[in-house]
Design a protein around this nucleic acid. Structure first.
Length: 584
DNA sequence: GCCGTTTTCGGCCCGACTGTTTTCAGTCG
């Protein structure tokens, strides 16, 4: 049973207790436990075997017992009893926007409705507005919610949402002179891999014209709600965007609040309470004597005696405890990045020439770029044979002769084949400056098989980095069954780096596993995996993902200079000596 | 149900918006 499965069950228990009207803090406890388990980064069974389940935040004796029962017997009596009381279909009603636990219970109790389809039929025949507390407007709203559910697009990749959000901000500032400040907030500012909707924040002395201007922007298709300080719209491309407008002297408090995450904010407000303060998006209220406004975001944290916390860390995964003890990491920044260790050219499936890629990398101020074209067995990508690899080498050397501030390195993206063997023999790999090894085929193999494939690549002394280790494609393909926990532990032993691939639909490793890798001392390679010159521009998304994994410059391979990377390769077990490691 | 540099018991973040209710409940983030 995986972390995901256990978290799902705890989440559903929370939902069912909520519908039954249980104490809301008990409901919250189950949801918190579910959240924390799904972001654990290592197998919950590791804690279970060690008898340390209660060391996981949000897990006490009662939930620990339930996890123990699940892992021991494969089922949970408490959960099964709840399922007898609340039909699964009733829980599914919570997926309808604007239907919460109270409304779900009402629909079930009064009309016996147990599925979204049944609710839809009842709404169309006008039965919902006969219920106590619901009227015609509620019925219309629920129908609209069901329609939204049906055409619900999945969460949007960060790389898709970011340009949309920044364009909207530019348009808003250009069309409305009353806007003093405007920025991205919410999960987008925290740089989550995917986002549900776009949150924007603006400051102005007069909110009303700002919100009118926002609602009138050309990309806006419909206004979903509009109040005094908040407007919510849907764009023609289907994205939902929320804009909140506040006075400039409350900007910092508002930005802190609107950036979230919700769990982070709850924790921050609890800390405020302990100091006799109440924190909201308007600032701090002191008991009896007035307010503390925070024009700057850092002042919110300062008021609580804390350093400013980078948005990427605000997930309530230990950042507040680290801030209190002065142990916040100094996160890796764009200026730390010295080069890119994974890029393709038209020698395999890329669109750019060697020279175009080199020029684009130089223009970014990089000092090196690894050309890592696909290898021979990946025929669809025009993978390189050893002969073509040597021909490419000659071109690379000719280009390098022209640069004194920049170096192209020759590498490859070495295919880890379905049977676990590598696509080149060691003597070919030994000629290369750098090797990224990746899985592209047979991604549906079972856990043991696909894990062993990656392990085999890790054990090869010439393999420097494992590329996109999980194989996920956001919104298209789940990650493979590979045991990332085992891969990370093995990478720590062999001194191999793991990639944080920056392609917006990959971001692989993800933040959670990147953090786990760093805990075990594994270096990260933040790579663009560019297939054309513009592809190099995606690196900031990988950088953000690594930052969400608490990475410092010292944790990142391509924050090293070229000389340091060469030294790192030499120092790795087996490489400098040109000998094979034992234990293959 | 969890948790503790004010607590092992008594707390548990805070406000916007909507709809229907004439003073507030439900939902959301």
């Amino acid at each position: 049973m995986t972390n995901r499965e256990i978290a799902d069950i705890l989440q559903r228990i929370g939902d069912m207790l909520d519908i039954l009207g249980e104490n809301r803090f008990k409901v919250l406890a189950y949801r918190r436990a579910a959240e924390n388990i799904s972001h654990l980064g290592q197998d919950v069974r590791t804690y279970w075997r060690a008898g340390t389940l209660q060391e996981i935040s949000g897990i006490g004796p009662a939930i620990a017992d339930k996890i123990d029962e699940l892992l021991t017997t494969g089922h949970l009596e408490f959960y099964e009893r709840l399922q007898d009381q609340v039909p699964t279909g009733v829980v599914s009603l919570l997926e309808i926007p604007d239907v919460g636990p109270r409304t779900a219970k009402l629909l079930w109790d009064q009309l016996g409705l147990q599925s979204v389809a049944e609710v839809e039929a009842a709404a169309r025949s006008g039965k919902l507005q006969t219920l106590p507390g619901l009227g015609a407007k509620s019925e219309t709203k629920i129908l609209a919610g069901i329609e939204a559910l049906h055409r619900r697009s999945d969460r949007i990749p960060l790389g898709t949402a970011w340009p949309v959000a920044t364009a909207l901000l530019e348009e808003l500032k250009a069309t409305c002179a009353d806007v003093l400040q405007a920025t991205v907030a919410g999960s987008l500012r925290r740089m989550r891999a995917t986002i549900g909707d776009i949150d924007l924040l603006a400051s102005s002395e007069v909110p009303a014209p700002v919100m009118r201007a926002f609602a009138a922007l050309p990309p806006v298709a419909e206004v979903l709600l509009s109040g005094q300080t908040k407007t919510s719209v849907r764009l023609h491309n289907g994205l939902q965007v929320d804009l909140r407008v506040l006075e400039p002297d409350r900007w910092g408090a508002a930005l802190q609040y609107f950036t979230g995450s919700q769990a982070h904010n709850v924790h921050v407000r609890e800390l405020a309470q302990k100091q006799g303060l109440s924190l909201s998006e308007y600032g701090f209220k002191q008991q009896g004597n007035g307010e503390i406004l925070c024009p700057e975001e850092a002042e919110v944290y300062e008021t609580l005696g804390l350093p400013w916390i980078p948005p990427e860390l605000r997930e309530d995964r230990g950042e507040l405890e680290a801030a209190q003890t002065g142990e916040l990491p100094r996160l890796v920044e764009w200026d730390d990045i010295q080069g890119d260790l994974h890029a393709h050219t038209d020698w395999s499936d890329g669109a750019g020439t060697l020279e175009e890629m080199a020029q684009a990398a130089r223009a970014k101020g990089y000092h090196y770029l690894v050309i890592s074209d696909h290898t021979q067995s990946l025929g669809v990508a025009n993978g390189l044979t050893p002969e073509r690899l040597r021909a490419q080498r000659a071109e690379i050397e000719a280009l390098n002769a022209q640069y004194d501030d920049f170096t192209l390195l020759q590498g490859c993206e070495l295919e880890i084949k379905a049977d676990g063997s590598l696509d080149f023999p060691d003597q070919v790999l030994a000629e290369l400056d750098f090797v990224v090894a990746s899985v592209h085929t047979s991604l549906r193999q079972d856990r043991e098989q696909i894990t062993e494939r990656v392990m085999n690549a890790l054990r090869n002394p010439y393999v420097d980095v494992i590329g996109h280790p999980s194989g996920r494609l956001l919104g298209q393909r789940e990650e493979s069954a590979v045991d990332l926990d085992a891969v990370i532990r093995a990478a720590a032993e062999t001194g191999t780096a793991l990639e944080v691939n920056s392609i917006p639909t990959r971001l692989d490793l993800d933040d959670v596993h990147a953090r786990r890798a760093l805990e075990l001392g594994v270096r990260l390679a933040i790579n663009s995996d560019a297939h054309h010159a513009g592809g190099l521009d995606s690196l900031p998304y990988g950088l953000a993902t690594a930052r969400r994994g608490w990475a410092t410059a010292g944790d990142v391979l391509n924050a090293l200079t070229l000389e340091e990377i060469r030294a790192w390769r030499k120092a790795r077990p087996g490489v400098g000596q040109g000998t094979h490691k034992s234990g293959r």
